[in-house]
């Protein structure tokens, strides 16, 4: 983003997540569990014009570098997101969110009668990416489809 287009000031250290589909930044915050119990300053820009996406959201998360596991979560909502790790106002690393085939212990299945709803069962929660475009995700056990709102509501 050019300086004249900059809507939020540069951050000294942290993570910038760019190219989030327009309107999905709040879901990203929830998916990354950044919406609760954190004290890091977070700036959010929503629905700005984007040549790539039409409209996009941008997140700037200060004093926190996203982990690979968090990038995996991010990929569910924003598979085309570009992630920059910022150190001392400079881009220290550029990362890509990549959607894997199996999503292990990222979200629980939303189906009320899935075996994984039984709290006594010890195995990991597993969702499976069946199709990328359009995105289709199912529980690996009960095979029920999961929509994105349900996944965000059921993150672990």
């Amino acid at each position: 983003m050019s300086d004249e287009m900059r809507r939020v000031t540069a951050i000294c250290n942290g993570t910038v997540v760019d190219h989030i589909p327009g309107g999905r930044a709040i879901q990203v915050l929830r998916m990354l569990r950044l919406d609760i119990g954190r004290s890091n300053p977070i700036s959010m820009v929503m629905n700005v014009p984007s040549a790539k996406l039409g409209r996009k959201d941008v997140l700037k998360i200060e004093d926190r570098e996203l982990s690979q596991e968090e990038l995996d979560r991010l990929a569910l909502i924003a598979p085309a997101a570009s992630v920059a790790i910022i150190r001392n106002y400079r881009v220290a690393e550029k990362l890509k969110a990549e959607l894997g085939e199996d999503l292990v212990n990222i979200a629980r299945c939303s189906f009320w009668n899935c075996i994984t709803q039984n709290a006594r069962e010890p195995l990991p929660h597993k969702l499976r990416v069946v199709n990328i475009e359009p995105l289709e995700i199912r529980c690996s056990y009960c095979e029920r489809g999961q929509d994105m709102d349900e996944i965000v509501d059921n993150i672990l």
């Binding site: 299945c109 189906f111 009668n113 899935c114 075996i115 994984t116 709803q117 039984n118 069962e121 010890p122 195995l123 529980c139 690996s140 056990y141 009960c142 095979e143 029920r144």
Partner: peptide, 14 residues
């Protein structure tokens, strides 16, 4: 045979 869906796959994984 189990009343919850996915129980067989879950068992097979275990």
């Amino acid at each position: 045979r189990h009343p919850q869906q996915g129980a067989a796959q879950y068992s097979a994984d275990a």
